[in-house]
Write a protein that binds this DNA or RNA. Sequence first.
RNA 1: GGGCGAUUAGCUCAGUUGGUUAGAGCGCCGGUUUCACAUACCGGAGGUCACUGGUUCAAAUCCAGUAUCGCCCACCA
Length: 927
Amino acid sequence: MTTELPTKYDPKHCESTWYARWEEAGHFRARPNPDRKPYCITIPPPNVTGELHMGHAMQHTIHDNVTRRKRMQGYETLCLPGTDHAGIATQMKVEEKLYREEGKTRYEVGREGLIERIWEWREEYGNAIYDQLRKLGCSYDWERSRFTLDDGYVAAVLKAFESFHEHGWIYRGTRMINWCPKCGTVISDLETEERLTQGKLWHIRYPGLDGAPDVTVATTRPETMLGDTGVAVHPSDARWQEAVGRQVLLPLMERPIPIVADDYADPEMGSGAVKVTPAHDPNDYEVGARHDLVQIVVIGFDGMMTDHAGAWAGLDRYECRKQVIVALKAAGLLVQIDDHEHAVPHHDKCGTVIEPLPMEQWFMNMEGLAAKARAHLQGGRTEIPQVRYQPDRYRGYALEWLDNIRDWALSRQIWWGHRIPAWYCVDCSGDGLTPLSGYDRDQALKDGAFRVAVEAGARPIVATRQPQACPDCDGTHLVQDPDVLDTWFSSALWPFATLGWPEPTPDLAYFHPTDLMITGRDILHLWVLRMIMTASEFVDQIPFQQVLIHPTILTKDGKRMSKSLGTGLNPLDLVRLYGADATRYSLLAQCGATQDVRFDAQIEDNVVQASASAEAGRNFCNKLWNAARYVMLSVDGNVTPVASAGTGELADRWILSRLAQTIRSIDEAQDSFRFSDVTRTLHEFLWRDYCDWYIELAKPRLLSGQSQGRAQVEGVLVYVLEQALRLMHPIMPFLTEEIWQQLPLADPERPDSLMIASWPEPDAEAIDMAAEADMTFLQAVISSARTIRSELNVPQSKKIHLVLAAGSTASAERLETHRDYVQGLVGAESIDIGTDLTQPASSGSAVVGDIEIYVPLEGLIDTDAEARRLRKEIDKFLSLITALDKKLGNEGFLKKAPTAVVEKERLRRQEYDTSLQKLTSSLEMLE
RNA sequence: GGGCGAUUAGCUCAGUUGGUUAGAGCGCCGGUUUCACAUACCGGAGGUCACUGGUUCAAAUCCAGUAUCGCCCACCA
């Protein structure tokens, strides 16, 4: 070879080059092909707001690993990328930017103005995540990239809405919803996050009226008392029998409110009486409904106290809390204050405390869809296609969730998203359309800045396009519903909408159902289940065969990764430091059965300083690079790969057997998504077997100069390396391609890229247990001899003489046949092998099976060191023998254990005894 | 409050249906720059498998309980 290869692998150089060449060659593209089976993954679309985080990096490394392997296996493999418009999150980001840069709020630029800015923002940042994925090496079909607000996708969303509405599942109704005062919108239960908060429990006395007893109630939210319209006690609570039906005086507001009997009150808690605020607590809302209690909204949509809060109107809800407490104290009605830890719902996007409020919204009844999804999750054998979960326990959680499903609040009071396809007639809606404060009616209707109240006369007309005229009054002045849909409504259609639905496209027919959905735990129900529901409903299929739940990535200390805490980890930092291949390797190596991964990166100021596991990946890259470098520099011209042992050389038989076994293990591990096993197995095979042993044994053969032997060893060296590169490619695409392209391989069939080369098949014929046993034996002998050398401080430059005293002719022959291996790898000048050899004077010694290994070292030997070594070995065997004797002396064991096990233990007992005797005599000799 | 998962070497983790002396990588200690690689090579030390009990001839592995950590679900004031 004339090529000059640097001694270190440089990822930067070849990553961008190869990526561009693959893409140019169209290797990422997949199109319906009747001659091949399809394999399809639609990626979970990242938010356009987002930058790649470690969870993404893990997820996409898995995607691409699976995708590349399937492609090599001959499937028409599609990995379809896309991004999510991510309503609230994106709008929040752009609003922040708007305020930061222009000092304006969304209301100042108006609906159109804001949406325009969001699109601009998306153009600028929306594709950033694609570039990041490319840097990781993801071989996705970029020509098919989809966005949840692109034209075709919008058509799918409208169609879905219309269809659900026709079923009567989507309706307009008033219910208790979660309101985020900061974002000014409804959010669903699934978007709230309970945070454990250290708060207080205030006990307040409500004076009785007309002979009714005083009632003490406890609350974590005293400000809500301003909206209390009742007090509830349990119907069977003897203490309160007399009080039910009477009234107490609500302090501060000086309003008489009734005492009602309701099961909700828990006699065990406090006084047994509970205050009821129907407008600000989901439970109280129910209680209020049962007893016809008035709803008084005291906290408004902006988180400020309303006019109904009397003297406290206009205060922030938390300021009001403080003042209410002061006022109650002054009135002598605050009887007790306890520390109280409790869960408080927060908006998961912005962290604001949720305000529960009764409100009219669009809802979807989920029962029909839940039933459909449930049928696909039963497990076991059935006619109905089943979605498999890995790990399976998440399927159980999903079923549980479906059993408790509640109506889904669909509408959001934001501007970025799919506007609800419902229209109202301005002429006949009466008071059903009311402008938001600060707008006059005409402007409000024009800007979509109004509230809809079906209860007050608005009549929604659901249609995918604006109707010409009102079906009731023929009025032509129609306005669209101001709200947009929950982002998850659109993402729920992802797998089939990205393949063309609602059009009956060839893509949809060919690639759907898709094969794999890889996701984190956080959106299993929120998203994954809803995709199963909608696919079942709209295309009568499951959306994917299997759901793979990947580990959550934590920091070194087992904490959540978070940018704001300075523990966020940018995977591209790892790529920059160690290369994409090393990063991928490191992520897969940590992706085992355990759910959470503690990523070992050291982070300072949100920048990765170092990562031991990525460094291990880099070292492995470099090892592979240098192994290839050695092969290329050692062989003569283009080599014809050799896949058989030919002359029967042990090393060849052994490495080919190991290769076949490795392929089997890799297939098994890949198919069951045990990625850490995949990397471990390949690491072991390439580093230990191929580099440490096979190449070392090949060196003397390459130097010996016999042309026939040379062709054999060169052929096997190249063949095994080439096969291993194929196995490694889905993990380390860049490095493997780079090496593979340079391999001096005489193969006319060779495709233009490793990424479209075929996946290796294990050769059953090559599996050779005898060869593996022989090698294991020789490795043990060689290691023992090396240990003696090392422990007795024999310099490596010193050539030693080795005496191998075999306990049987079989062992002697075994050694004799492979004398060269031992001599070469131990670094011995000469070896004596025989059954009748005795221990030379002043020698180091060791025992392997029935072989005694002696290294004569006249004058050099440190007698004390050697004696220490031997005693330690002897002690080890003594304790082993003691344990074994106990076992073999146990009648229960002899009687009940399988005879094979007993036999094995007896044999071991003999071997130990032989070793012990030999070691003992060596020690005696020394002394 | 209910459910689930985890606990194995200094660190991060493997350990498949119970059966040789519980493994790997990193780190540590000793040695080595002979022509693939010091991002390397050779060798070594290091574990009461969280704890307690049980089942079994035999338990890191199966069962029960305890502790610690984490996650999910839940309207308990």
